[in-house]
C-alpha cells in the first residue's frame, strides 16, 4: 500500500494539563489513514472522537506522540498552513462554520485565504458547488438553506481549497434524515469520483456500513478496528460498549444464537433477505 496520508504515532492528548481538570482525551492512538480511503470513526460523546478529528489538521497537537500529514509533523508551525490545505475539516453545527453572506462568497473564503488569484477562485467555486450539487444556490444567503444544504456548502468550502482529505466531525448530528442522506451521499460520491480521502466521525451506526474501515473509540482509546463486517460481527462487545447496532444485525445475531445458521456481520436488510431467501 501507498504511504499513509495521515499517521497517528502513539498519540496522547490531555485537556487542561497540570490542572485539577486535567483529562486524558486520547490515549496511545496509533492509526494510519491511506489515500482514497473512507474511514468512519464511531463513539459516544466524550469518547475522544472529536479530539481525534481535530488532530488530523493540527487544530490540536498531541501532548506526546506525533501526527504526520503527508509526511509533515502537525507540531511544525512552519508547515501548519500546508497541512490545513491538505486536510480540510467540516464541523457539526452547520450554522457556525459559514462565514459569508452568500453561498458563493463563503465557498470562496478558503481560496481567498490561500491567496489564489481572483479568476481562479471563480473556477474553483464553480467546480466545488457542482461537486456538492449546490450550483443553483450560489447567490442564496446561508440562512435561507436547510441544514443538509448548509453542510453541503461547508463541504464545498473545503473542496475549493483542493484538499486531499476531508475530516467531517459529526456532520450529521444536527440534521434531519433527509439532510443526513444528502450529506452521506455527497461524501461517498466525493470519495468515489474525486478520490478524496474521507474521515467521517459519527455516532450513527447506519452511517458507517458503507465505509472501508471503522474505528470505534471508547474512553480515548481505539476499542475496535476493522471493516464494517468485522466490527459488526462483535455484537456482544458492541452491546457492552452501549453502542447501537442496526436492527437487522441484532436480529441475525439473535437468530444465530438460537441455532439458525446466519452468517456473522449482516448489516443491511438486503443481505439478510438474501441469506434467508437465497
Amino acid at each position: 500500500m501507498a504511504e499513509p496520508l495521515i499517521r497517528f504515532e502513539g498519540v496522547h492528548f490531555k485537556y487542561n494539563p497540570g490542572t485539577e481538570r486535567e483529562w486524558a482525551a486520547l490515549q496511545d492512538i496509533s492509526l494510519d489513514i491511506y489515500p482514497g480511503e473512507f474511514v468512519a470513526v464511531l463513539g459516544h460523546n466524550g469518547s475522544g472522537k472529536s479530539t481525534l478529528a481535530k488532530h488530523c489538521n493540527g487544530l490540536l497537537v498531541p501532548s506526546s506522540g506525533r501526527v504526520l500529514v503527508a509526511g509533515l509533523d502537525t507540531k511544525d508551525d512552519a508547515e501548519i498552513w500546508q497541512i490545513r490545505q491538505t486536510v480540510g475539516m467540516v464541523f457539526q453545527n452547520p450554522d457556525n462554520q459559514l462565514v459569508a453572506t452568500t453561498v458563493e462568497e463563503d465557498v470562496a473564503f478558503g481560496p481567498e485565504n490561500l491567496g489564489i488569484p481572483s479568476k481562479e477562485i471563480q473556477a474553483r467555486v464553480d467546480e466545488a458547488l457542482r461537486a456538492v450539487g449546490m450550483e443553483a444556490y450560489r447567490l442564496h444567503s446561508p440562512h435561507q438553506l436547510s441544514g443538509g444544504q448548509k453542510q453541503r456548502v461547508a463541504i464545498a468550502g473545503m473542496i475549493s481549497m483542493r484538499p486531499r482529505c476531508i475530516v467531517l466531525d459529526e456532520p450529521t448530528a444536527m440534521l434531519d434524515p433527509e439532510g443526513r442522506r444528502e450529506v452521506m451521499s455527497t461524501i461517498h460520491r466525493l470519495n468515489k469520483t474525486e478520490k478524496i480521502t474521507i474521515v467521517h466521525i459519527t455516532h450513527h451506526m447506519d452511517e458507517v456500513i458503507n465505509a472501508d474501515r471503522v474505528v470505534i473509540m471508547v474512553d480515548g482509546k481505539i476499542a475496535l478496528h476493522g471493516t464494517p463486517k468485522e466490527v459488526f460481527s462483535q455484537v456482544d462487545l458492541l452491546r457492552r460498549l452501549h453502542l447501537d447496532v442496526p436492527q437487522v444485525t441484532a436480529l441475525s445475531y439473535r437468530l444465530r444464537s438460537r441455532g439458525h445458521g446466519l452468517p456473522e456481520g449482516i448489516i443491511t436488510v438486503n443481505e439478510m433477505v438474501n441469506c434467508l431467501c437465497p
Partner: peptide
C-alpha cells in the same frame, strides 16, 4: 459566545490568518 468559538475554529481550519496575503474573490 459558543457560536463565536466554533466559528473561529472553523475559520482557522479554512486557512484564515488575517488579511495578510489574502486575495479577493470579487475584485
Amino acid at each position: 459566545f459558543r457560536r463565536a468559538d466554533e466559528l473561529a475554529i472553523a475559520m482557522e481550519a479554512r486557512g484564515y490568518r488575517g488579511g495578510e496575503g489574502r486575495t479577493k474573490f470579487k475584485e
